[in-house]
Computed example of a mutant assay.
Amino acid sequence: MSKTLGFIGGGNMGQAIIGGIIESKIYSPENIMVADLNEKLLKDVEDRYNVKTTSDNNEVAENAQIIILAVKPHICDLVIDGIKDKINDDVLIISIAAGKKISQIEERFNKNIKLVRVMPNTPALVGQGMSAICNNTNVPKDELDEVLEIFESFGSAEVVDEKLMDVVTGVSGSSPAYVYMFIEAMADGAVLEGMPRDKAYKMAAQAVLGSAQMVLDTGRHPGDLKDMVCSPGGTTIEAVKILEDKGLRSAVIEAVRGCVKKSKELS
């Protein structure tokens, strides 16, 4: 694309997006500009991705046709206040500030803007992110498609209704933590039975990765895939029974619901 893509914030998530974009060749490095106050970080970003960098957010605001606000929620308002007078009506704003609603960002800009809100998750850092996308009514379909292409460059992306963003937090945004706990617990069980920890982590993590890929690739119900592994009277159904007895399923459901509830309280 010939447009200039600007980032305000060059931290981990911003760099994950930049890396995916460049690897997918959606934008060339010379069409990407990154602003951040951390000079060392900017030098690292410039050396790693060969993109333009600046310590002045207004330079991005004045030159980019698409601007990604890749900043923490607590400084998002301050950043917007500093650039809003430099933003033209035709600029597309993408916010990845967690918890910041479209209406809140629109109110802060205090002008008619094209705005997309995105919630990516941390597996974006290894090219396996899941991003939820919603937009205001000013964003035309072709530009929304551009946003999807950007966020699919480092994983998967889905357009959702904004009212579901709290649910996205519970099932996607926060859920890597649940999965890490599951991997750790499986590995601990293997270590308890005598397996070296490094091998236990590798086997547990690969099993989770492969199982998830089967759900995505086959489109089959997770219950069907589970049944494929459970032979009558075998080892797997014995393990499944214990997990059911211990309440794994209900614990996970309640964890997701609790996460959604907390997200609603914080938003």
Rank of each mutant, 00 (worst) to 15 (best):
T4A: 05
I21C: 00
I26W: 03
S28V: 11
M33E: 04
A35T: 09
D36V: 07
L37Q: 13
L37S: 10
N38H: 05
L42R: 06
L42T: 02
K43Y: 04
D44M: 12
E46Y: 11
R48L: 13
Y49T: 08
V51F: 11
V51W: 13
T53M: 11
S55Q: 13
N58K: 15
N58I: 11
V60R: 09
A61K: 09
H74M: 05
C76Y: 07
I87Q: 07
L92Y: 08
I94E: 00
A97D: 00
A98M: 06
K100F: 00
K101N: 04
K101T: 09
E106G: 11
F109G: 09
V116K: 03
R117L: 06
R117K: 14
V118L: 07
V118E: 01
M119D: 01
P120G: 03
A124K: 03
V126T: 13
I133D: 01
I133L: 09
P140G: 06
L144I: 10
L148K: 15
L148D: 04
E149P: 07
I150T: 02
S156Q: 10
D161H: 14
D161F: 05
E162G: 06
D166F: 04
V167R: 04
V167T: 13
T169F: 02
G173Y: 00
S174C: 10
S175F: 08
A177K: 08
V179W: 04
E184Q: 09
V191W: 07
M195H: 07
M195I: 15
D198A: 13
D198L: 12
K199G: 05
K202H: 09
A204P: 02
V208N: 02
L209C: 01
A212N: 00
M214C: 06
T218H: 07
T218L: 14
H221F: 06
P222E: 01
P222Y: 07
M228S: 15
M228N: 15
M228C: 15
V229P: 08
P232T: 08
G234M: 02
T235F: 12
A239I: 06
L243R: 10
L243F: 14
L243K: 10
D245N: 14
L248H: 07
E254F: 00
L266Y: 10
